[in-house]
Write a protein that binds this DNA or RNA. Structure first.
Lengths: 270, 270
DNA sequence: CGGTCTTACGCCTTTCGTAATAATC
DNA sequence: GATTATTACGAAAGGCGTAAGACCG
């Protein structure tokens, strides 16, 4: 009685894997145990949660899955929170950052190394949600996340756990165009190139890195922003090369476009 | 391993009761079982969570308790959510409302009875948080909550579960004064009686019914709003009588002060 | 002492794995 | 027929209650 988190965890894994046996091996259980877990959940809730062969969540299962992730995350967060109050300050600081938080990251890193000279520092770059979840679960000491924010609504974190957040920097958004794009010259002269002018352009949807297209549609008030394709990745460099090759446009913070790194010839490069 | 919700529930109960044995009888366990629950949690987390005799949470315990409530609530919410997708529409609608949501409640009630003529309707009036928690846990079908809200920030629900919310009505806030209060006449003539003028008045803090004083302090920008006493209750009628008797002032929505009910003499009243 | 929490121990329930059965592709 | 899910059953572990012990006021 009462929705055991263990069972929720197997349900989530089964839903992700789309298979009982795959979930079993990932969790270190036997297929039998996984089957019993799902059966226990279903008998407890009085309704099937998964349709078998293929394994797909029922509507009821979908509802439960919507809750399962946040619950498990919060459970981890609780444990991490307790340990944090007990343990002495860690000897290695683990930082996490989303790719476009690079500029404030440099500042934060300097600050951290100055304030805690003795401690090692580890850095992980990953998607926004992974940063938030990692901080919540205690995997990371500190996380830096970028995102579209207004003055009133600082940043809409999708994580289910409320975290202590502080805005640290802001940057203007620009449209990344290939250099030979017809509008590229216009963008030099006048800053106000409205999104409406680009409604018919081909866009790259890169939700893990840049502004998600849905957010842009809301901002532009236009439904006409069609993605040429979706880029599931966190690498900004690759994304910029795709833009340069004319595969589509992307909205990015200005600082992402400006290379602050100089190239100097070395013996190796000759 | 892994923070069993059962254990969390007993921890919460023990912290509320301030006693193992009291918590045991409330939960239907023996004192021994409760002791084992706490011991299991403490050994799992590797730190004491409660200081005994008297029973008070340690700092680590406080942290865990901050998470425990929301987790347990969300667990209930998940179960209720699943059942809701499976069960056919309930034969009795259970509504809940905070006391000062009375006016929109009347409208909602009429709407509900018109739309679902066959179904019985049950109404519960309780504090804002209880409404939110009840809706999350599926105890209530629909909840109406009042609160101080701006256009940008609709209503800050403290509940840990995000609920589908819709603003349905708004009302101006007024200061409730006794009729013979020196400022009562002024309030008739001009509406703009600033909170600063009343900074030195005696206030009744009724956080479950009216605007909490902390919210007023933030709005007034003044730290000088001192409560004469705190009223822990949900009954508006009693609160208004306290104001009328000169025990203190209260900020309420305007509609709470206007009696729309007429008195007519009956045989019984002679 | 009276009350309250902790520990020890026995019983019962739960849960997992092995293995056999059933069902689907 | 091969893969995958369910069912049956035995062994191990976990959880609860009773009862005795330890601690504090």
């Amino acid at each position: 009685m009462g929705v055991d988190p263990h069972l929720l965890r197997t349900l989530v894994t089964v839903a992700e894997c789309g298979s009982f046996s795959a979930a079993a091996s990932r969790l270190g259980y036997t297929q039998s145990a996984v089957s019993q877990h799902i059966a226990a959940l279903e008998s407890d809730l009085g309704t099937p949660l998964l349709r078998r062969r293929p394994v797909v969540p029922t509507p009821a299962g979908e509802r439960l899955l919507e809750h399962a992730g946040p619950i498990l995350l919060r459970l981890d967060a609780a444990r991490a929170d307790v340990r944090r109050t007990v343990a002495d300050p860690p000897s290695t600081l683990t930082l996490a950052a989303s790719p476009l938080a690079a500029r404030p990251l440099a500042v934060a890193l300097a600050e951290v190394r100055r304030s805690y000279p003795g401690t090692d520092t580890m850095l992980t770059v990953c998607g926004r949600d992974e940063v938030a979840e990692g901080v919540a679960a205690g995997t990371f000491t500190l996380g830096l996340v970028d995102g579209i924010a207004a003055a009133t609504d600082p940043l809409h974190l999708t994580a289910a756990v409320q975290l202590r957040t502080t805005p640290v920097a802001h940057d203007d958004l620009v449209v990344a165009l290939p250099k030979d794009h017809p509008l590229a010259s216009r963008s030099r002269t006048r800053r106000g190139l409205s999104l409406g002018d680009l409604a018919d352009a081909r866009w790259i949807d890169a939700p893990e890195v840049a502004a998600p297209l849905t957010a842009l549609r809301a901002a532009a008030g236009s439904d006409a922003l069609h993605p040429a394709f979706t880029y599931n990745g966190t690498d900004v460099h690759t994304l910029l090369r795709l833009v340069a090759s004319g595969h589509g446009l992307v909205v990015l913070p200005q600082s992402a476009l400006v290379p602050d790194v100089a190239a100097v010839a070395t013996a190796l490069s000759s």
